[in-house]
Design a binder for these strands. Structure first.
Length: 536
RNA sequence: GCUCCGGUAGUAUAGUCCGGUCAAGUAUGCCGGCCUUUCGAGUCGGCGACCCGGGUCCGAAUCCCGGCCGGAGCACCA
C-alpha cells in the first residue's frame, strides 16, 4: 500500500509540474475519447408536463404593478420565460392591476417592470393589462349568472361565512337565474354601493376546504374615492384574482401556469369556473418561496423602508430588487442560472449569496478587466531606485489581447526616491525587514512604519527572485496620478480610496475587478470614480 | 383549528413515480496540494446528507403506517 501511494504521489507530482496546456496536449494525444466528457453539462430544466399535448407552449408572468420586481419574483419570471424559449413557445406579460384599493397599482411600476424584464433578458412576446379588459370579465360573469353557475350575493361576509362553514347555501344562491340576471344588471348599472353585493362562482358546498366554497369573483369598488391609476373612476366593478386570472389564462391560450404555491387553492377554485364554462384548465406548476439570506425581499418591507428613509431608493444595495442587483454588478445570466438550478420544486428555498456569487463570478472573471485600487490610501516611500521603471500591467491575466496600461515610476532627489499609494490594510500588515513585491514593478524591503505611512528600500527588480519565497504581492498607485474613488459597499457604506488613472476611461455599467479587492460595477466616472461593490 | 404540500451534506440540487446499478451523484462552501506577478481564476485531493420510529420485502432514500419538523391556503388581496 505504502509503495503504491508513493508511486501515485510521484506521478501526481509529475503531472502537476506540467502546465495546464501541456497536460491537455498529452491527454488529447493519447486519450482523445475522454475529451468530450470534459464539457461541463449545463443544468437543464426538467421537461414540462404534457408538453406534447399543446401545439404552442404559452407561459406568462403576471405581476401587480404595485412595486418593482425583486429576486422573489425571479422564479416566476425566469422559469416561465425559459420554458417558453425551450419549447419555441410564447411568453406573455400580463399586468394584474385589478385592485385600485388595497393593492393599488402605481403608474411608474408598469414601466419599471418592463425595464426589469428587459434587463433580465426575458423578451416579452405579448403584453396585456387587465384594467383594459374589464368588459371581457363582465361578459363572462353575465354568462355564468345566466347559466346558474354564478350568482349575485347580497350577504355580508360574516353571514356568508357562517353559512358556508356549515356547508349551507346562502339565501342568494338558489334564486333562479332570471332573477339573478336582474341583480346582475342592477350591479352593472350601479344599483349597489361598495360592499353591498358580490358575484360568487358556484362550487360544491361541501368541499372539504371551506375557502373553496362559492368563491367571490367580482366586487364593487368606490373608484370615486379610490381611482385607478390608469382608468380612474370609469369602472366600479372590479374582478377578483380568480376571475381575472382564470379568464385570461384561458383566453390568452396559456398552456402552463408557473406560479408560487400560495396560488394552489386558487387553481382548485378556478377549476370550477373552467368546468362551468366548458374550458380545460392548463397545466399548473406551483413552486415554493425563494429567499436569500439577509436581503429584504418582501414588497411591503421594501416600500415601507423607502418611505421611512431606511433605504435610499429601489436600487439601494441592501435590497434584493433587480435594480439593486443590477447596480451592484450582479449579472442577469447569474440570476438565470441560479433559478434554473433551483428548478420548480414546491419547497421553499433559502439561497445564500455565495451561490449567486459563484455563478456571477464565472461570468465576471472572464469579462472583467483588472485595475488597481487602494482602499484608505497610505503613503509608501521607496528609496534607492537604481533607475526609472516602466510598469506594464495587463488588463486581464488570461487575455493579453486586451492590452495593457503603463505607468512610469521615476526616482527623484538625492535619495532616488519615489512615493506611491498603497492600501491601508496592506501597510498595516507590513513588518520591518519584510520583503514585499509591488505587482509588475519591483521588490522592496520595509524599513520603517509610522502612523502616516511606510518607508522602504528598493530590493530587486526580478519577480522570479522572490517568487520561490512567496512574498506578498500588493497593488500600488503612483502618487500624483491617483484617481479619487468611492466604493459603495453592500451595506451602503462608502469606502474611499484611489484607483489608477486608467480608470478615467471606464464607462458607467462597466464591471471590473479591483485586484485583490473584488468586482465592482462602475456607476459614475467624473471628478471621482463611483463604483458599487459586487463581490469577492 | 381546518384543508393542502413538503422534509437528501452549511446552502442548493439529482435520485423517490416504476425498490436492487445509491455504503447516495453534482454545484457551491470549507480544508490541503499544485499552478498562477490578485487574497481572483484554473487544477488535484479531502470534509460533509437520505427527519425519527415501526412495517412490507431476500433487499427501502425510494412502498405502507405513525410521529416530529417546516411551508402554503383559510380576504369583497394578488
Amino acid at each position: 500500500m505504502k509503495e503504491l501511494s508513493g508511486v501515485i504521489n510521484a506521478v501526481v507530482a509529475e503531472v502537476n509540474g506540467l502546465s495546464l496546456s501541456e497536460q491537455k496536449a498529452i491527454v488529447e494525444k493519447n486519450w482523445p475519447e475522454t475529451q468530450k466528457k470534459h464539457e461541463v453539462e449545463e443544468k437543464k430544466l426538467s421537461p414540462l408536463p404534457n408538453a406534447d399535448k399543446y401545439k404552442l407552449i404559452t407561459t406568462r408572468f403576471s405581476p401587480n404593478p404595485d412595486c418593482v420586481l425583486h429576486l422573489g419574483s425571479a422564479r416566476a419570471i425566469v422559469l416561465s420565460h425559459e420554458y417558453a424559449r425551450m419549447y419555441n413557445g410564447k411568453f406573455i406579460l400580463r399586468f394584474e392591476d385589478t385592485d385600485p384599493k388595497t393593492k393599488k397599482p402605481q403608474l411608474q411600476f408598469y414601466d419599471a417592470i418592463r425595464q426589469d424584464l428587459k434587463w433580465l433578458g426575458c423578451k416579452v412576446d405579448e403584453e396585456y393589462i387587465q384594467s383594459d379588459r374589464l368588459e371581457i370579465y363582465y361578459e363572462i360573469v353575465g354568462r355564468m349568472v345566466g347559466d346558474g353557475n354564478a350568482y349575485v350575493c347580497e350577504c355580508s361576509p360574516e353571514e356568508f361565512r357562517n353559512k358556508t362553514l356549515a356547508k349551507d347555501a346562502c339565501p342568494c344562491r338558489n334564486i333562479p337565474p332570471a332573477e339573478q340576471l336582474e341583480r346582475w344588471h342592477k350591479m352593472l348599472s350601479g344599483g349597489y354601493q361598495e360592499g353591498q353585493a358580490v358575484v360568487r362562482v358556484k362550487t360544491e358546498l361541501d368541499h372539504p376546504n371551506p375557502a373553496i366554497r362559492d368563491w367571490p369573483a367580482l366586487r364593487i369598488i368606490d373608484t370615486k374615492k379610490y381611482p385607478h391609476p390608469r382608468v380612474g373612476s370609469k369602472y366600479f366593478l372590479w374582478p377578483l384574482y380568480n376571475l381575472a386570472a382564470g379568464v385570461d389564462d384561458h383566453l390568452m391560450g396559456m398552456t402552463h401556469i408557473i406560479r408560487g404555491k400560495e396560488h394552489y387553492t386558487n387553481m382548485v377554485r378556478q377549476k370550477y369556473m373552467y368546468q362551468h364554462l366548458g374550458w380545460e384548465y392548463p397545466e399548473a406548476i406551483h413552486y415554493g418561496r425563494l429567499k436569500i439570506t439577509g436581503a429584504a425581499l418582501s414588497k411591503s418591507k421594501i416600500v415601507a423602508g423607502i418611505k421611512e428613509g431606511a433605504f435610499a431608493d429601489f436600487d439601494d444595495p441592501r435590497l434584493g430588487t433587480f435594480s439593486a442587483l443590477k447596480k451592484r454588478g450582479i449579472t442577469p445570466e447569474a440570476i438565470k442560472k441560479m433559478i434554473i438550478e433551483v428548478g420548480t420544486k414546491p419547497n421553499d428555498v433559502t439561497l445564500s449569496w455565495e451561490n449567486l456569487y459563484s455563478h456571477n463570478r464565472k461570468v465576471l472573471d472572464a469579462s472583467s478587466n483588472r485595475y488597481f485600487f487602494v482602499a484608505e490610501p497610505a503613503e509608501l516611500r521607496v528609496v534607492g531606485l537604481p533607475k526609472a521603471f516602466q510598469a506594464k500591467l495587463p488588463h486581464h491575466p488570461e487575455h493579453s489581447e486586451r492590452g495593457f496600461r503603463e505607468y512610469a515610476v521615476t526616482p527623484s532627489g538625492d535619495e532616488k526616491a519615489v512615493s506611491l499609494w498603497i492600501a491601508q490594510k496592506d501597510a498595516q500588515a507590513m513588518e520591518q525587514g519584510q520583503t514585499i513585491r509591488l505587482m509588475e514593478l519591483f521588490n522592496i524591503q520595509i524599513q520603517n512604519k509610522t502612523e502616516t505611512g511606510v518607508t522602504a528600500a528598493f530590493a530587486s527588480e526580478s519577480y522570479t527572485d522572490v517568487r520561490k519565497i512567496k512574498v506578498q504581492l500588493i497593488q500600488w498607485i503612483p502618487k500624483g496620478s491617483e484617481y479619487p474613488t468611492e466604493v459603495v459597499q453592500q451595506d451602503a457604506s462608502v469606502t474611499e480610496g484611489y484607483s489608477e488613472v486608467a480608470c478615467k476611461k471606464l464607462k458607467p455599467d462597466d464591471i471590473i475587478q479591483f485586484e485583490r479587492y473584488g468586482f465592482v460595477r462602475v456607476d459614475e466616472v467624473g471628478e471621482k470614480l463611483i463604483a458599487y461593490y459586487a463581490q469577492k
